Simulated scan of single mutants.
Amino acid sequence: MSKIHSSRTLCTPRHLLALSAVCAGACIAQGAMAQEASDSWKFSAGLGLVSQPKYPGSGDTKTSVLPMLSANYGRYFIGGVPGAGVPAGVGAYLVQDAHWRVGVGLGINLDKPRKQSDSARLNGLGDIDATTLGSVFASYSDSWWKVGGNVITDLGGKDQGTRVSFDLEAKYSPMDRLMLTAGPGLTWADGKYTQTFFGVDAGQSARSGLASYTAQSGINSVSFNLGASYQLTSQWGLGARFSASSLRGDAADSPITEKKSQNTFGVFANYRF
Rank of each mutant, 00 (worst) to 15 (best):
V81K: 06
V81I: 14
P82D: 09
P82E: 13
G83F: 05
G83D: 07
G83P: 07
G83R: 03
G83I: 08
G83T: 12
A84G: 09
A84I: 01
A84R: 01
A84M: 03
G85V: 02
G85D: 04
V86P: 05
V86Y: 06
V86G: 07
V86K: 12
P87L: 05
P87A: 06
A88R: 00
A88L: 12
A88M: 13
A88N: 09
G89R: 01
G89S: 05
V90K: 01
V90H: 07
V90P: 05
V90G: 05
G91W: 11
G91R: 14
A92M: 14
A92G: 13
A92D: 06
A92R: 13
A92H: 01
A92P: 01
A92I: 15
Y93D: 09
Y93Q: 09
Y93S: 07
Y93W: 15
V95T: 08
V95Y: 10
Q96L: 11
Q96S: 14
Q96I: 12
Q96H: 12
Q96M: 14
D97V: 09
D97Q: 08
D97P: 08
D97R: 04
D97I: 06
D97E: 08
A98E: 15
A98N: 12
A98R: 11
A98V: 00
A98G: 06
A98Y: 02
A98F: 00
H99T: 13
H99R: 14
H99V: 04
H99N: 15
W100C: 03
R101T: 04
V102A: 10
V102K: 03
V102T: 09
V102N: 02
G103Q: 03
V104Q: 05
V104F: 06
V104L: 14
G105K: 05
G105W: 01
G105F: 00
G105T: 04
L106I: 14
L106E: 00
L106C: 02
G107T: 02
G107A: 02
G107C: 03
G107W: 04
G107D: 07
G107E: 05
I108F: 05
N109K: 01
L110H: 03
L110R: 11
D111P: 00
D111L: 00
K112A: 10
P113I: 01
P113S: 02
R114C: 08
R114S: 12
R114H: 08
R114N: 10
R114M: 15
K115D: 13
K115P: 03
Q116S: 15
Q116R: 09
Q116T: 07
D118I: 12
D118C: 10
S119K: 08
S119T: 02
A120K: 13
R121N: 14
R121A: 14
R121W: 00
R121Y: 02
R121M: 11
R121T: 13
L122T: 03
L122Q: 12
L122P: 06
N123V: 09
N123K: 13
N123T: 14
G124S: 09
G124R: 05
G124D: 08
L125R: 02
L125F: 04
L125H: 01
